[in-house]
Computed example of a mutant assay.
Amino acid sequence: MLIASAALLTALVYYAALCALRPFAPCRKCAGLGTIERSGKPRMCPRCHNDKLRLRLGRRAFNAWLRTRQAGTRPTPKGL
């Protein structure tokens, strides 16, 4: 049980560091090419819109948490 918990914690720390250092990953639909083939013709990828990259799920969740936290936090007074 201890080994499994340590392995899970290590994987979470690794993914968090990956999301912080490299927030973008290659698009899964087009494999980072920006185009896919439909009916034998190359078309723009509908998922990444030819950007070739996508925001990682962990980074997207972190950004949403930051927006929620900033929206709910009172601004500090300027006189202090």
Rank of each mutant, 00 (worst) to 15 (best):
A6W: 05
T35L: 05
N50Q: 09
L21W: 13
E37W: 05
L55M: 05
G32W: 03
H49P: 00
C48S: 00
I3S: 11
G58T: 05
G79D: 15
R43H: 08
T73H: 04
R69H: 05
R38M: 10
R67F: 03
S5G: 15
R22V: 15
P42H: 08
A7G: 04
G79I: 15
G34K: 03
K29R: 13
K29F: 11
R38Q: 13
A64T: 05
L80T: 15
L12N: 12
G40R: 00
L18Y: 10
S5R: 12
L33H: 08
A71D: 03
L55A: 02
P23S: 04
R54N: 07
F62M: 06
N63C: 05
L33M: 07
L9N: 07
C27W: 01
A11S: 14
A6K: 10
L12Y: 06
W65E: 06
W65A: 13
A17N: 15
P46N: 00
T68K: 08
P75L: 15
T73Q: 12
A20H: 12
P26R: 03
A6R: 10
L12D: 09
A6P: 01
M44E: 13
L8M: 10
P77V: 13
P77L: 14
C19Q: 09
A71I: 00
Q70M: 11
R22E: 15
I36P: 03
R69N: 04
R54P: 01
L2I: 10
F62A: 13
S5E: 13
K52T: 13
R56E: 02
L33A: 09
R47V: 15
L12M: 12
T76P: 06
R67P: 00
M1Y: 06
A64Q: 05
I36Q: 03
A11L: 11
